[in-house]
């Protein structure tokens, strides 16, 4: 990594009573990157973000954001970071522009600069037609845009987004990501949590959380080439056939198949190296002349499935 990291987590741990929500998590986020924290629900993503934003104390470990230890002195970094939480957390009984002005004042912007910034974030998020509408009356996608606009009012250097696209439609989701790319291009560092695989593919860096533990972290390239994804002695093939769900059931019973995932009408299989394509077709799609196989490389999803398997086998459960 060429620049000093803007976020540094070192052995971050958070316990709630007996439950360990985050266990010994360490990673670095370089300036200007889009860092995706991926993991199933309840894997500790939001807890990590809360600790990095200084609103939740770590039980152990340390987090440094923009050179400030957020466990020690969270207030020193708050005017330089923005946060968009998982649930919509603006005031539904205030209009979009009242919400914006409120956050502008909270960050202590003087009136002139506040007007400039309100204009800038309204332009960026294209909120202008909805300025006078009550925030509670906006649709899901526009709510998220308003939340983003509020989080950006003070030009933060780092923006934390906790599942920003949860519950909004695919078009709004894509548009929101276009906005995020625009921000990243402008030099803002983004830390995004998600459980959508395709969103992870848009990040420059990815960390994968599994059962409160950071199973793997690296650039997207490094993750794709994770050696554990296709263990030695195995290979990946794709099978297309007429009855993929039946083939899936057979594959699960076949001990030559290490791993199988259904992708639409095709199966992605991880099989022992010695098993020939013909044998796979004959075993999983018997009597289907249209069945076809081809060799494939691992997708990011395969990587995460592999990582979860490796974690399970390592006995962390």
């Amino acid at each position: 990594m060429n620049a000093a990291p803007v976020i540094l987590a070192d052995g971050l741990t958070r316990r709630f009573g007996d439950f360990v929500a985050v266990r010994d998590v360490s990673f670095e986020v370089p300036r200007g990157s889009i860092f995706g924290l991926l993991g199933p629900n309840g894997s500790g993503k939001s807890t990590i973000i809360r600790m990095l934003c200084g609103v939740l104390r770590a039980s152990a470990g340390r987090a440094t954001v923009l050179g400030v230890d957020v466990g020690q002195d969270p207030e020193r970094v708050k005017h330089r970071i923005g946060y968009m939480s998982q649930q919509f957390s603006l005031y539904p009984d205030l209009t979009a522009s009242e919400n914006l002005s409120f956050y502008g004042r909270i960050y202590g912007l003087d009136p002139e600069r506040r007007r400039d910034r309100e204009q800038a974030v309204t332009d960026l998020t294209q909120l202008a037609p909805f300025r006078e509408r009550l925030a509670g009356h906006l649709s899901g996608g526009w709510k998220q845009r308003l939340a983003l606009a509020c989080a950006l009012i003070h030009e933060p250097e780092i923006l934390f987004l906790d599942e920003p696209t949860a519950g909004i439609d695919p078009v709004a989701r894509r548009e929101l990501w276009d906005l995020l790319f625009e921000l990243a291009a402008g030099g803002v560092t983004l830390l995004v949590t998600t459980h959508y695989m395709d969103e992870a593919e848009r990040c420059s860096h990815v960390g994968y959380l599994y059962l409160s533990r950071l199973a793997a972290v690296g650039t997207l390239e490094e993750m794709r080439n994770w050696p554990g994804v296709t263990p030695t002695g195995t290979r990946r093939i794709e099978l297309t056939c007429r009855a993929p769900t039946e083939a899936l059931a057979r594959a699960r019973r076949d001990e030559r198949v290490v791993e199988v995932t259904l992708f639409g009408t095709a199966l992605h299989l991880l099989v022992h190296e010695g098993v020939a394509d013909e044998a796979v077709r004959a075993a999983l799609a018997p009597g289907d002349a249209s069945a076809a196989t081809r060799s494939i490389t691992a997708t990011l999803e395969d990587v995460f499935v592999g990582l979860s398997r490796a974690e399970r086998e390592a006995g962390h459960e």
Binding site: C53, S85, Q87, Y103, I106
Partner: peptide, 13 residues
């Protein structure tokens, strides 16, 4: 309950 308090905690207020 609305989560707006957490949002405020992240600001320098």
């Amino acid at each position: 309950e609305m989560g707006t308090l957490e949002q405020l905690f992240v600001t320098p207020v």
